[in-house]
Design a protein around this nucleic acid. Sequence first.
DNA 1: GAGTGTGAAATTCTTCACAGCC
DNA 2: GGCTGTGAAGAATTTCACACTC
Lengths: 255, 255
Amino acid sequence: MSEPVETSALTLNRLSVYLRCLRTLECEGVQRVSSQELADRFHLSPSQIRRDLAQFGGFGVRGVGYDVSSLAERLHRVLRLDALHRLIVVGMGNLGSALSTYLGFNDSSFQVVAGVDSDPGRIGTRIGGVLVEPYDDLAAVARRCEADIGVLTVPADAAPAAYRALVEAGLRAVLNFAPVLLDEVRGVRVKNVDLRVHLEELAVHLGATDADSLRELAAGAQVPARDLEGRADSAEIEPSSALAAAGEAHPHRRG
Amino acid sequence: MSEPVETSALTLNRLSVYLRCLRTLECEGVQRVSSQELADRFHLSPSQIRRDLAQFGGFGVRGVGYDVSSLAERLHRVLRLDALHRLIVVGMGNLGSALSTYLGFNDSSFQVVAGVDSDPGRIGTRIGGVLVEPYDDLAAVARRCEADIGVLTVPADAAPAAYRALVEAGLRAVLNFAPVLLDEVRGVRVKNVDLRVHLEELAVHLGATDADSLRELAAGAQVPARDLEGRADSAEIEPSSALAAAGEAHPHRRG
DNA sequence: GAGTGTGAAATTCTTCACAGCC
DNA sequence: GGCTGTGAAGAATTTCACACTC
């Protein structure tokens, strides 16, 4: 039996990065590159590059390096970018609209083909090249457009139902911006992008980050934050996060 | 000598998630919770929860569990959410505008205090509660507003210079949406959010993801894009990979 | 009995270092 | 000489399992 060696998300994410770096070099007319040069130029690790690439066969030539174009082409295929992936955006609020526009620009691999929203005022309008359709038709719209990937930009409480509808419609990949951990259906991959989590990680970094300091913080001590003296309390803020929603999933690389 | 035990980003991200889960329980009136209950409810790993929390001192009570409110409060402090963090958004295009509005929602920990853009047509307008100022004044604006965290939503080629300007202005944390790896200045943390990378990871998962199949793909073979109706032709290649590809469900669930 | 906190094991990921090829 | 591909070492992270506490 062949082993079920899954390529890790970390590796895949790096392949995406490598591909972009290679495209840059291609534009500059560079034809060959060594792992060392790639690493120096884009702040990567040479041995990691070699290991990542070697995982998919001998891409390089010993003593020479990698052929920029052919390596790019191979990565392009590994990442399935030779197929067109159709996105359906669920929730055409600020974020959903922005993403539709952002992702709407001509790209041969990803295209937003549909958008749905529950706000009657938005239905029927055009945003970023797609017509906004009723949220209730989500599954039907997804099927009709043959969408591959769902993009969830709905509020947290609406996300689980939206996810189920996408699963129902046969999608197998979802990019989730809602701050909830979805109950992942086997075979339907969810990738979470949680702005809140990212910001909070950065916030911690603004103060001391060693375990001792954090332990003191937890206990209630005032560990210096840096410059935050001017705590002008910003007018009308919710005292407690009444809108706080459920959790989310696992980090990635981050990246 | 005190050890320089840095808390990992992975752990911090999970703390964010735990905090949100706890807020949800708080709203439901739950007062105590065990790591097992938390895990069951939000699809997490109980032992990981315990280890993450124990890192900051004894939060729980043996035989009983954790006090929801007091644990939430401690995490809130560890994550520095008791201070207000001021965000400056660089690039008020679609994504920047959306984020300004999105993050503009009343939150006591993060607030967008400024936005800059290089488009004269946008300067002077109000988006999501902030006045758009000239991109060229970036460093000055950041200083004046006492911004803590920079949000980069500029095109890739503008990002490195914008990052340097933020460093110059004294910021120590940057959330970067531009598809470039910034040359990270020591002490100024960069967190990348790369939609392209996320989408490409999902794209791979639409097909087989075992190393063998990817190797074939790289070599130019047509590996099936799993059971998506149309692609019937390629059914016989790599029968073993079809199942393996589905997985990668929960990192913590034992298979 | 129930459930945390934590050494120890297991697993995953990264880096080293060098054999082998150009 | 230069550089890849890779076994082996090393780090980091996760999971196990159980001593200990309430």
